[in-house]
Write a protein that binds this DNA or RNA. Sequence first.
DNA 1: TTCTATGCAAAGACTTTGCATGCTG
DNA 2: CAGCATGCAAAGTCTTTGCATAGAA
Lengths: 138, 138
Amino acid sequence: MQMSRADILKRLEQHKVTPTPQRLEVAEVLLERPQHLSADQILDRLREAGSRVSKATVYNTLKLFSERGLVRELTVDPDRRYYDSTTHAHHHFFNVGTGELSDIPEDQVEILKLPALPDGTEQESVEVLIRVRDRQTP
Amino acid sequence: MQMSRADILKRLEQHKVTPTPQRLEVAEVLLERPQHLSADQILDRLREAGSRVSKATVYNTLKLFSERGLVRELTVDPDRRYYDSTTHAHHHFFNVGTGELSDIPEDQVEILKLPALPDGTEQESVEVLIRVRDRQTP
DNA sequence: TTCTATGCAAAGACTTTGCATGCTG
DNA sequence: CAGCATGCAAAGTCTTTGCATAGAA
């Protein structure tokens, strides 16, 4: 990824997000490279870098970004929402011990057969989540 | 399913859960049939039936049940944990509008290819989640 | 100046903890 | 009687709301 400030501005505009200083800061951290971060992780990074954004602004900004399709919200850990800088369809590994999330390239998974959808519904997404844990090495 | 009180007692014992009046009440509601319920939904049903269990006890009981493998915890909605009375591997539909969860029988999904696991990890589960939404009927 | 959008303190929702209570050996 | 398990009030964490502030027309 490695987006310049100008690239980020462009991407915000593409998604109809009015750029503000705080939104730019959040976008810079999350869009820097393909990654999965929680709101608090982003807040920590911003604070380390000297920013003074409030917690609520980070949460609200990420919510806005995901509503506008700029990032993708992941539901894999009941304790926190992760935001994915990669928005196209792909699958995930989730390490239940460490909370670490990693991408599975789409071509590494092939689903042969899927069921019919419930009546009156349309598909929004198909996600494969492989939960893993660190192997014991005693 | 349709378990009698005796069946439920047996199932608790099989999973090394000491039966208490409150645990039996929670188990009766959740294990009655294949279903997915949140802690608060279970609390509501218990209260309607005249029970006086506390909220915390319902939460703690469900946590214990899932640790002991009596039920399965599902992570599909960041706002609440669902508990599944069906513990064997299977997949789910999740209606993002209504919050409704439904089972996909295991034989309705065939995964042809899965990636190698990250180094040093072992697989815990593979879950397919199909998010759907009600189709617009204007 | 009026109207709209932004940013944060405080409130809210879900869940867990710590201690009082009761039971077992 | 000692020791352990149980159940709940209160506290904690993550997230959203409502209002004060700033900016645009």
